[in-house]
Design a binder for these strands. Structure first.
Length: 584
RNA sequence: GUGCCCGUAGCUCAAUUGGAUAGAGCACCAGCCUUCUAAGCUGGGGGUUACAGGUUCGAUCCCUGUCGGGCACGCCA
């Protein structure tokens, strides 16, 4: 921060530490916590240190509090300090301390809210990581909004953030997509078999088949007899539906196409990944790294990880498969890493992937997973532990599914038959800003009821507009004033003495603490709640107080205040990937 | 059946991770535009935090049990 005004919580915590050292040698490591009070009568900040020390000092908490206050070094920012309740120490800030923050905010602009909480530690956030086998749906949308917002928050809180998307380009699912596309292509040429019930049904598969046809005409057409080899005769008339049959079909497909298979596979992957990337970009979500699962195999990292596990004696053979003894590390049962057919499981490449993440030197690795994957956590952490890694570096944030509501009814979201709502449709329906905001309006590990009608409505019920409207209102006022931004820096803010003004100032000061808490708790929703509160206080102030008053000194001070409010609204909305419009 | 998560105002959700009198928004009722954007504001009622115990200065938060809901329990990803 480029100002002499300190971060109050840190400042007061230091004072209390000194005070504690003066009155006792007990609990030198006790964390000293300053909290914002809920009630104005309790002052601005509160400290519960006395109550924490009381037990070991065998003294009445209120007496300890009194001793602490007497030992507290003087602070130029404090109006008064008092003991309250069971032994709380309440701090009352001087108005001037708050008023100075207007200048600080106007000076630091979009950097206000930044802190060194993260101390430049390297943190990776891996999110979305959806299989590139079809369009992103609204479930992915929440993970995308959550991850992107969280990454921004961590960055503001002083972490060095890398945003990563893990591309599952190696597995069976990709084979199924390639097969599906090829079958549609054959269908187009009238030489296919009934489309398998367990292949990808979506319209986008037909679209890809069409593209291949346009580019290469009949080059990949083959006789249908070869297709059904190893399959029951009925496969010519009725769609197959079992996994075994589909695997047989995939094998036939690879054999028939030979080297051309790689082309189809690569084509559908590139196509889907490109679509995904565009979709996310339009959603305001971008990544630093797109990490290929296939590359783990190509670079021998999977074999390497398996070898290490083997050296640690935590692998064993049974029923022709290779198992990882995850029960030794808290899992419910042991897990297969290599199947009877010699193929590695998804778990195997995931072990290699996470080991690789750790070896890339991130101090902290955050995975954002759908909550339905929670059962997967013990085995991944178990594997890392087996490899001698410090699993506390890995944090997994679970995101519950969002349930869409339209006309008060659940909008169906079955992944089968391509009936699911895509993220793209959602964006086109409610707009990017509303979608981004609504997704982070709840604690992410809670179910989210997404009210589509509300998100679309241009009414005061809609929290997105409520916050954006506050921003636009400030812009409008400043435009009518017509002055230069530099003039605001000269404002004498000591005339901001109304209770609403002092409350707003405190609210602005809180911003960096909220960012820090959101970073610590991996909770973007705190930013959304904060913005709603700040906007609410502003709207109230707006209605009760006129800014463009004849008293030019008072006018300038109030304009400086609302300009700083605008700055914080902008900074907060930016964290969430929501625009801050000048006009509405 | 086993494991994890959840249960807060009529509805949707908060509560700075153990702090003070549990807060917002909808919905409902009554008001505010000759004045910087009414996509706004002001006021009002609404609670045994599912239930029963326990831990302590203090519990929505931690422990135990019961009831109710969600998810996961593959050589799928």
């Amino acid at each position: 921060m480029t100002s002499s005004v300190p971060h109050f919580k840190t400042h007061f915590a230091n004072l209390f530490r000194q005070a504690a050292n003066r009155i006792t040698t007990v609990d030198p490591h006790a964390r000293i916590e300053l909290t914002r009070t809920k009630q104005a009568s309790h002052g601005d900040y509160s400290c519960n240190l006395a109550m924490q020390l009381a037990k070991s000092l065998r003294q009445n908490p209120r007496e300890v509090a009194q001793s602490l206050i007497e030992a507290l070094p003087a602070s130029p920012y404090l109006e008064k300090v008092e003991v309250a309740g069971a032994g709380f120490i309440n701090l009352f800030l001087k108005s001037t301390a708050k008023q100075q923050y207007v200048q600080v905010i106007l000076h630091n602009k979009e950097a206000f809210g930044c802190s060194d909480y993260g101390q430049g530690r390297k943190v990776q956030v891996e999110f979305v990581s959806a299989n590139p086998t079809g369009p992103l749906h609204v479930g992915h949308g929440r993970g995308a909004a959550m991850g992107a917002s969280l990454a921004n928050i961590l960055s503001m809180a002083g972490f060095q953030v890398t945003r990563e998307y893990y591309v599952n380009d190696a597995g069976r699912q990709m084979d199924i997509l390639a097969l599906s596309t090829w079958l549609r292509y054959l269908e187009h040429h009238g030489v296919s078999i009934p489309f398998p019930a367990n292949a990808y049904q979506g319209e986008y598969v037909r679209a890809m088949a069409q593209l291949i046809h346009q580019a290469h005409a009949q080059r990949y057409v083959h006789h249908p007899d070869q297709l059904v080899e190893g399959l029951p005769d009925s496969a010519r008339e009725t769609p197959i539906s079992t996994d075994d049959e589909l695997d047989q079909l995939i094998a036939n497909c690879k054999r028939i196409l030979g080297q051309d298979y790689a082309y189809i596979h690569n084509f559908v992957l590139t196509e889907q990944l490109g679509d995904c990337r565009n979709d996310l970009m339009e959603f305001g979500v971008e990544f630093d790294t797109w990490f290929s699962e296939q590359s783990l195999f190509d670079n021998g990292l999977v074999n390497h990880a398996m070898q290490l596990l083997d050296e640690k004696k935590v692998l064993y053979q049974q029923d022709g498969a290779t198992w990882f003894r995850s029960t030794d590390f808290g899992d419910e049962k042991d897990r297969v890493v290599c199947r009877e057919n010699g193929q590695f499981t998804y778990f195997a490449s995931d072990i290699a992937y996470h080991l690789n993440k750790f070896e890339r030197g991130f101090d902290q690795v955050i995975n954002i997973w759908g909550a339905d994957h929670h059962g997967y956590i013990p085995r991944v952490k178990g594997a890392l532990q087996a490899l001698g890694q410090d699993t506390s570096r890995l944090e997994i944030a679970l995101v519950q599914f969002a349930v869409l509501y339209r006309d008060g009814k659940k909008a169906s979201m079955s992944t089968r038959s391509g009936e699911f709502v895509t993220l793209r449709e959602l964006r086109q329906d409610v707009g990017r800003d509303a979608a981004r905001f609504f997704y982070v309006l709840r604690k992410s590990d809670q179910h989210l009821d997404f009210d589509l009608d509300l998100a679309k409505s241009q009414s005061n019920d809609n929290p997105v507009y409520y916050v954006q409207y506050a921003h636009a209102r400030v812009c409008s006022v400043l435009a009518q004033w017509g002055g230069e931004a530099d003039e605001l820096l000269q404002a004498d803010t000591s005339v901001l003495t109304e209770s609403a003004e002092l409350a707003l100032l405190q609210k602005l000061i809180d911003f960096s603490d909220v960012v820090e808490t959101a970073a610590r708790e991996l909770s973007p929703h705190l930013i959304a709640f904060y913005l709603k509160e700040l906007a609410g206080e502003f709207h109230s102030y707006y209605n009760s107080t006129r800014f463009l008053v004849p008293d030019t000194s008072l006018q300038l001070a109030r304009l400086a205040l609302v300009a700083s409010i605008r700055q914080i609204l902008n900074n907060g909305l930016c964290l969430l990937g929501v625009s801050a419009p000048d006009k509405m």
